[in-house]
Design a protein around this nucleic acid. Structure first.
Lengths: 174, 174
DNA sequence: AAGCCATTTCTGTTTCTACAGAAATGCAGG
DNA sequence: CCTGCATTTCTGTAGAAACAGAAATGGCTT
């Protein structure tokens, strides 16, 4: 797949962004490439377009799959794997948020809970430290609980809510 | 400042988390330490507690300051700098989101705009690629516009909205 | 059943970031 | 103006991650 200069710029920038957010650069580039493509791509196509090693493509695609961002598809008469990604930014965001919640937030909640438990009984931890951790725990809990509810709403409803912006505040007397 | 085992665990975990989200480990550890402390800490205290080099503390604290997460304060009769962080998780989240928006999202929007402009005129970029970038741009635009509005709402209103969860959907006919 | 081709796993190299320690700067008090 | 201490900047190093290429695996086709 040939990239125009702007497409290349998009791919490169996406790579940088991924980097800053804890996703490695190649993975983000592959994702960007698939996002730009109007059809599923094969590993060898991505290899030549992005000039990455095949092994790198293979592993990255696997990671993207596990994130739920990329799907492995097939075409008749070709046994090679083809890959495609979500085309709706909104779906992408939800998928990423979901995956990272599972991988990072949920374990964090577990750790904080354990900390709170131990802090309450160890007799060394100063009260204010316990209080801080509790506060953080309940904050994250509230936030993720909210997220879990919100993400189940139909997209159209969410769009309406977003367009309301700060005017949603009316409904709670803000 | 002495850390109980659970406090240490909290600090270490916070460091790991920072890492995964593109903040370096020491910076996140320092932040965690300040968060647990009930008083502003000096660089040398953090040095011994976290066993990091003074230079590292100095640079990290500076970075946290630029993120708006840490404030440099002074006490009478001591010319050394002392540091403290926000104690409200909600304020922390907003501050972080704000800073990262400025540093990463806004530049991204600029890049996407430039890409869209060039793609429209270069005569090489396939239409679907242009369309994808446009869609992403408008999505990010919508989202950040929403965020800018929301963050101005009083915290109490936000808490009410969060507690509503998916029931906010009622208001837009969901 | 054998060979071929796509894919994955493994391993060594390279690159980059984080960090410590040294040197330099700056400031306040004497 | 000089001295001493805190802080910052600079530089080399250590460690980790990313990556390429080689080797191995697995499955389809003939």
């Amino acid at each position: 797949m040939e990239l125009s200069p702007s497409m290349e710029r998009f791919v490169l920038h996406w790579g940088e962004m991924g980097d800053r957010w804890g996703v490695n650069r190649s993975i983000a580039q592959i994702h960007a490439l698939l996002y730009l493509s109007d059809r599923p791509l094969r590993a060898d196509e991505m290899e030549t377009t992005l000039r990455l090693a095949r092994s790198n493509i293979s592993n990255s695609v696997r990671e993207l799959e596990s994130l739920g961002l990329v799907e492995r598809v097939h075409v008749l008469g070709d046994r090679r794997d083809h890959f495609k990604t979500l085309s709706e930014p909104w779906d992408m965001l939800m998928t990423i948020a979901d995956a990272r919640k599972k991988r990072e937030i949920d374990p964090t909640i577990a750790v904080l809970r354990a900390c709170v438990n131990e802090m309450q009984t160890d007799g060394i931890t100063p009260p204010h430290a316990l209080e801080r951790v509790q506060r953080m725990l309940s904050f994250i809990d509230t936030l993720t609980g909210w997220f879990d509810q919100i993400k189940r709403l139909p997209k159209s409803t969410l769009v309406k809510l977003m367009n309301l912006g700060s005017r949603v505040a009316r409904f709670v007397g803000g």
